[in-house]
Simulated scan of single mutants.
Amino acid sequence: MSLPELVTPLKRQTLSADVYAQLRELLISGHMMPGEQISLRSTAAALGVSVMPVREAVHRLVAEQALELTPNRALRVPVMSVSQFREITSIRVNLEGLATEQAAEHLSDAAIVQITALHDRFSEEMARSRPDSSRLIAVNKELHFAVYKGAGMPILLQMIEALWLRIGPILNHDLRSGSRRVGEQVAVNHHARLVAALKRRDGVSARAALQGDIESAAEYIVSAGVLLAADAFEEPVPDAGKPALKTARRTRSASGRQTA
């Protein structure tokens, strides 16, 4: 499904903030793909606004490294390297693990009922002969953030959201591609252990279940070959007699050696 089909036309006055919120949610939820190019005009038309608030919103997302401008000035969702993905995964394990452990102690009974219902919805969809990947991705995100919000740590929640903003487009590759993890219901099993631990108020076991969910998905994504093998970074290069800078790209191999 293309971006113009995913967004909702806006009516309120805070247009730039609304555009930002919609695009941010699409990135966090994994509805936008790595490498997907974004047209300001098409997005503006889909939202029913002028190009200006869209441009302001995407500039915020570029500053947050959730979107990027390529050397030819095309706007796209970044393609992540293996080392970047592993680093973010390591941070997620710690931050989301902390939120989960704290949530086990602080979740209300109503919140546990909500999380259980989300787990049931996820399990039912996964059990279908042809699971709806969009529904799986949406419910998976709802379940995780219902747990994290239950920790009652708003700053920690903001940090987790910032990580999902970067990693969201690749995070649900297994759910989107219908991998063996879907057929074997690997995520369902991790979620079942997570929910059971939350009901027992067992923070250590809840954290372990969450960690297993993150790490098993990460292992599949790395093995699937959908990430860049080497990091790409930009370096300023003097332009013939002008103060402006050009862009040069180098890659860093797995051994750490730089190549032009």
Score class of each variant (00 low, 15 high):
A162Q: 07
A162D: 07
A162Y: 01
W164L: 03
W164T: 07
L165E: 00
R166M: 06
R166P: 08
I167P: 00
G168P: 01
G168R: 01
P169F: 06
P169R: 06
P169E: 03
I170Q: 00
I170E: 00
N172L: 11
N172I: 05
N172G: 13
H173I: 07
D174I: 00
R176M: 03
R176F: 03
R176K: 12
S177T: 11
G178H: 03
S179T: 10
R181V: 03
V182R: 02
G183E: 06
G183Y: 02
E184P: 06
E184W: 09
E184L: 06
Q185M: 12
V186K: 04
V186D: 04
A187S: 10
A187L: 14
V188D: 00
N189A: 09
H190R: 09
A192N: 06
A192W: 04
L194M: 13
V195R: 02
V195A: 05
V195I: 15
A196C: 14
A197N: 09
A197M: 11
L198K: 12
L198N: 03
K199S: 10
R201T: 13
V204R: 14
V204K: 15
V204M: 11
S205L: 14
S205Q: 13
R207F: 12
A209V: 13
L210M: 15
D213N: 12
D213Q: 10
I214A: 04
E215G: 05
E215W: 08
A217V: 07
E219N: 15
E219Y: 08
E219P: 07
Y220E: 01
